[in-house]
Design a protein around this nucleic acid. Structure first.
Length: 335
DNA sequence: CAGGCGTGGTA
DNA sequence: TTACCAAGCCT
């Protein structure tokens, strides 16, 4: 391992690696469980470690290996994912588990290309699993690595145009020895030292190698194009209750909150049309505000205890924790 | 390939 | 309260 930055990073990681439930300590002779690495990596896509920990514990307790997960009912997995967001991940997780269990004898492939072909596993996750679980010198580039490399090399080109340059620098740093620890070290550094705001350059093990540090520009990197403002949408959500049973429906597999159980709603737009699931006296009980990635939503919550024949959905018992957060908020207005 | 796709924490 | 962000993937 010639790259002095990689050496400094490895030495820092040996002393400061975070203790995480899916992780094997640096330098350990143990190999991590590919199933747990894969599960954690999918959960961690665009999601914080703090948010993932509880979900990871519940998933691994309920489904300790890929065969168990593959055999699970779709509804149980979607309910267990509720609240974590980006629900396509849960659908792809199950699809991936069934391919690995059904066609690969329960063993994850060990090459980046084969991993990349599985549902929900893209360029980042395939490289991360290959490096961490199988000790291959894959070039792992996530948001942390983009930030660390942008600063180390003082790359002024904004993302995403700078991605090829970042990848080349990351490849030049990637060692043949302990590539899994190297990948995790880059992410730990990005998460704890080389943070987006107020990076702790004073205690950074790579400070002497950092071009942005020398120029005083670390905080302003990586540069990114400004984001468009999120539009406002409105809608109606209908909570029909019969004793302990609530009217819910399964949302379409594709699209927003796809495949999740939900209360019936109107369309979401500037001027939504009321769309009660059956004729009744619907009483307003308040509003729910919720932010999505590309728009903000205000739902008027309506409820009834009246009998009626719904044109969609079914009445049944309901655990609000199995709903996406938006609908759990609406449910909470009535309890 | 730019946009769709969640949520909760933080400044 | 708003704005931005956090281990991306899919189409």
């Amino acid at each position: 391992m010639r790259d002095p930055r990689a050496v400094a990073l490895r030495d820092w990681y040996d002393r400061h690696a975070r203790d995480l439930p899916w992780r094997v300590p640096p330098g350990s002779a143990d190999r991590p469980d590919p199933y747990r690495i894969w599960l954690s990596e999918v959960m961690l896509q665009q999601t914080t470690v703090a948010a993932v920990k509880g979900y990871f514990a519940r998933f691994t307790a309920a489904w300790p290996d890929v065969g168990a997960l593959a055999a699970a009912a779709d509804a149980n997995v979607m309910a267990a994912w509720a609240g974590l967001g980006y629900y396509a991940r849960a659908r792809n997780l199950l699809a991936c588990a069934r391919v690995v269990a059904g066609e690969m004898d329960g063993h994850f492939p060990q090459t980046e290309a084969e991993l990349r072909a599985l549902p929900g596993i893209g360029p980042y996750t395939s490289a991360a699993i290959a490096a961490i679980a199988f000790d291959q010198p894959a070039v792992v580039v996530d948001g942390n690595v983009e930030r660390v490399i942008s600063r180390l090399a003082a790359i002024e080109t904004p993302l995403p145009a700078s991605k090829p340059e970042i990848r080349a620098e990351a490849a030049a740093m990637t060692p043949e020895e302990r590539p899994g620890d190297h990948a995790q070290a880059m992410m730990d550094l990005g998460a704890t030292i080389c943070t987006p705001r107020n990076p702790a350059c004073v205690i950074c093990p790579l400070a002497v190698h950092c071009a942005a540090r020398a120029k005083g520009t670390a905080t302003s990197l990586p540069r990114k194009a400004p984001k468009a403002a999120r539009p406002e949408r409105r809608g109606y959500v209908y909570l029909a209750r019969r004793g302990d049973e609530w009217l819910t429906e399964m949302r379409p597999e594709r699209g927003l909150l796809g495949g999740m159980r939900a209360f019936p709603t109107s369309d979401w737009s500037e001027t939504p049309a009321p769309a009660p699931p059956f004729a009744a006296e619907w009483k307003p009980v308040g509003e729910v505000r919720h932010g999505f990635t590309h728009f903000r939503l205000t739902l008027q919550v309506l409820t009834t205890g009246a009998a009626g024949n719904p044109d969609r959905g079914t009445f049944g018992p309901l655990d609000p924790a199995s709903l996406p957060t938006l609908f759990a908020k609406a449910h909470a207005l009535l309890t």
